[in-house]
Computed example of a mutant assay.
Amino acid sequence: MSILDNIKNIGDELLHSVDNNVEDKKATDSADGRVYTVKSGDTLSAIAKQFYNDSAEYMKIFEANKETLSSPDQIVAGQVLRIPE
């Protein structure tokens, strides 16, 4: 196997990994609307950017989840957040 084949295989693996990560970050629907499961490294700003195309909308998510969040800066992987429309 040539070096170029190895580079291509590594690139394909990276693209597959990125595609899986994007699929993991999709919201799911629930009876209460959209929900999102926080992944390691997420911030409310990044989640707001994903759903609203505006990271400044993070307070909208925080307000919808005040009963489980004590601060917008303290979210943990595995938390399930409601994402208001």
Score class of each variant (00 low, 15 high):
78 G>H: 03
49 K>P: 01
46 A>T: 04
30 S>H: 06
40 S>F: 12
61 I>G: 02
76 V>N: 10
10 I>D: 00
61 I>M: 02
24 D>P: 08
79 Q>W: 09
12 D>F: 11
39 K>M: 04
46 A>K: 07
33 G>R: 06
74 Q>H: 07
16 H>E: 01
10 I>G: 02
59 M>V: 06
75 I>T: 09
54 D>K: 13
3 I>A: 01
64 A>L: 07
85 E>R: 12
16 H>A: 09
70 S>T: 13
73 D>Q: 05
60 K>M: 08
28 T>R: 09
51 F>P: 00
40 S>P: 01
80 V>K: 13
1 M>H: 08
36 Y>R: 00
9 N>C: 10
44 L>Y: 04
2 S>G: 12
21 N>D: 13
55 S>K: 14
63 E>Q: 15
15 L>E: 08
82 R>F: 06
4 L>H: 06
68 T>P: 03
57 E>T: 14
2 S>P: 00
48 A>F: 07
69 L>G: 10
13 E>R: 15
71 S>I: 06
29 D>E: 14
41 G>L: 08
62 F>P: 01
47 I>N: 03
72 P>N: 01
74 Q>P: 00
25 K>C: 03
61 I>P: 00
44 L>C: 07
45 S>E: 04
56 A>Y: 05
39 K>C: 00
56 A>G: 06
46 A>G: 11
61 I>Q: 02
40 S>G: 10
23 E>C: 13
20 N>Y: 00
